[in-house]
Amino acid sequence: MKGPRYAMVVDTRTCVGCAACVIGCKAENDTPDGYSRDWIHSLVAGEFPRLRMTIESRRCNHCEKAPCVSVCPTGASHVGPGGTVQVDPEKCSGCKACIAACPYGARYVDPRSGAVDKCTFCWHRLEAGKTTTSCQEICPTQSIVFGDLNDPESEVSRLLKTRKWYVLQPDAGTAPKHFYLE
């Protein structure tokens, strides 16, 4: 495949779940009150005092086989440049099929426009020549890494080669491009 193939890696070992990514994204992308494009998901298992905790910073997985794109009746949800999944708010009719189709709960209806909205991998920043997403830029633990999977030298490629990782709900068959390091 030619051109970049963008992906994101989150290190769950260092992520403390502070939600800087969430607030940073809200400010960067001016999302409506009460809605956000990314969120913290934490899971604690076990019984006092033998407990285990996993913290994940979650957002749209920009799947290779994005179900939201295939169910969209108007073409508003589409595969954008770099293999990212984007929504064209001009075309969206708010039928919500994509919300139902997304196994990650990444999408919501922006009450201001009536169009579906979600993480864009900060596409506007990439277009402006920046190489980081807002969440990556702000993250105090630097647990979020964004980059090009097709570039073997990129940080994401390097991390995926050297560390154990998982994706969310692999059985859903969506081939997500958002990876979590163990």
Binding site: A19, A20, I23, I138, Q142
Partner: peptide, 22 residues
């Protein structure tokens, strides 16, 4: 519109906590 960390600052190193971003 938004607040970012100053990469030159030895305390923030360009990154912020959620409160700083808000």
């Amino acid at each position: 519109t938004k607040i970012k960390g100053n990469p030159k600052d030895p305390l923030s190193n360009g990154h912020l906590c959620p409160r700083g971003a808000g």
